[in-house]
Simulated scan of single mutants.
Amino acid sequence: MTLPWQKSSHSEEASSCLCLTTGPTGLVRIRESDAPNVVLTTTRGRLRPFISAIKADRLPQGRERMTLQWQKSSYSGEGDACVYVAAGPAGTIHLREGDAPGVVLTTTPARLRPLISAIKANRLSP
């Protein structure tokens, strides 16, 4: 099934825009136009705080991202298929995949706990 991707109305340039789609399960999928194979899948409820952080300009910018001390997850295997985590300013947590180091998810411990619990309980679908 091919999902219809829609360009965000806030995206300006055609080569670096954000695209979204929702599937039959209600999950929201987000990708950048210049990296269409890297897709973030989430729920609307989990996306709202992220959008609020963007609107309030509470996301790390430029140099702040480069100075993070990344640590490979102890549960990750060998090669690029691994997850890295870094502690950021003001108690934020940053996550990225080894094969997509430019895509960084920023969250808080309180928002990350439910995701970790769902993963441990095998409540997430691929």
Rank of each mutant, 00 (worst) to 15 (best):
L3W: 12
H10V: 14
S11N: 10
S11C: 13
E12N: 15
E12K: 15
A14T: 14
C17Q: 15
L18Y: 07
L18R: 09
L20G: 07
L20W: 03
T21G: 07
T25K: 09
T25I: 04
V28W: 00
V28N: 01
V28S: 01
V28R: 01
I30P: 02
R31H: 07
E32H: 13
S33T: 14
S33D: 04
D34P: 02
P36A: 04
P36C: 04
V39W: 01
T42N: 03
T43H: 00
R44S: 02
G45N: 02
R48I: 01
F50Y: 06
I51L: 03
S52R: 10
S52T: 08
A53W: 00
I54K: 01
I54D: 01
K55P: 01
K55D: 06
A56S: 09
D57P: 00
R58N: 07
R58S: 09
L59F: 09
G62Y: 02
E64C: 05
M66P: 03
T67N: 13
L68K: 05
L68Y: 03
W70L: 06
Q71Y: 05
Q71K: 15
S73L: 05
S74L: 14
E78G: 06
G79C: 09
A81H: 12
A81G: 13
C82G: 07
V85E: 12
V85M: 12
A86G: 08
A86S: 12
A87E: 13
A87W: 05
G88S: 05
A90Y: 07
G91H: 08
T92K: 07
T92H: 11
I93P: 02
R96A: 04
G98R: 02
P101G: 08
G102L: 14
G102H: 14
V103T: 13
L105E: 04
T106E: 04
P109F: 01
A110K: 09
R111M: 10
R111I: 03
R113C: 06
L115P: 02
A118H: 13
I119W: 05
I119E: 08
I119S: 06
K120M: 12
K120F: 06
A121I: 13
A121M: 13
A121Q: 15
N122A: 12
N122W: 02
L124G: 10
